[in-house]
Amino acid sequence: MMKYVISLIIGMLVGIAALFLMLYFNPLTSQNKLSPLSVTDNDVITLHYSAVAQDSLIYTNDGESQVDPHPVKVLQLWEPTIRLTRAMATVLLDSRGQVAGIGIKFSSDSESSNILDGAAIVDSVWHIFLPGRGSLFIEQSENYWSYLRKVVIPAYRSSGDNWRGTWHGNITSGPGALGTARVVGGSGEFSGIDTEAVEALLAKAYSVELGPVAIDGELLIEIPRKREFDNAATE
């Protein structure tokens, strides 16, 4: 009797391990590297930033996560309602590497995350101000599953507890049907626009101890032609 129970338990452990391997290597959950905005006829604003906490103006979280808040004395988000939330303020650069403005990003782990579907979802919003041009609000769901599979887990599996390489991927997964973020213009030349954006990451180094070490972020924001958003504003 005992040997049957033991073989059943071993079988269960093998089954659970097989399930996780299946989820990890599932090719159906691979991320599309092509930006949906790459085929647009409209103008696209490109904004770059460093996704490394130490390079930001401020970065804060619950204070117990892998990535340390920056600067050290920044107020931490330890209250239960915001413990799964991060806040970052950073300088945004344009496509020529010139300072373009300031971006504030709030991101919270999403309850729509589902490992079975390969969905490690983060709900985030950007509050962007580009002096001389105007302000924008970006709402998006981000899926970090591909990033976890290709960067974070390999870093944990590495004997040196780090990962080096090149990984480039779109992290925006919604709410737009094509996996785009929603953008609403607030002021200046962007006032009245309702358009789309995509955020991508270019990872080059990750450390188990420190988190992202060399990761750049990129925001591609589609700007409709003047006539289109004038019509949208009057509707």
């Binding site: 073989s7 059943l8 452990l13 399930l19």
Partner: peptide
């Protein structure tokens, strides 16, 4: 019983991932 264990393990894993919220 080993094969049954594998199937049971997969079923338990799927059920746990489906019913226990990740966040």
């Amino acid at each position: 019983s080993f094969i049954a264990g594998i199937l049971l393990g997969v079923a338990v894993g799927v059920a746990a991932l489906y019913y226990v919220p990740a966040v």
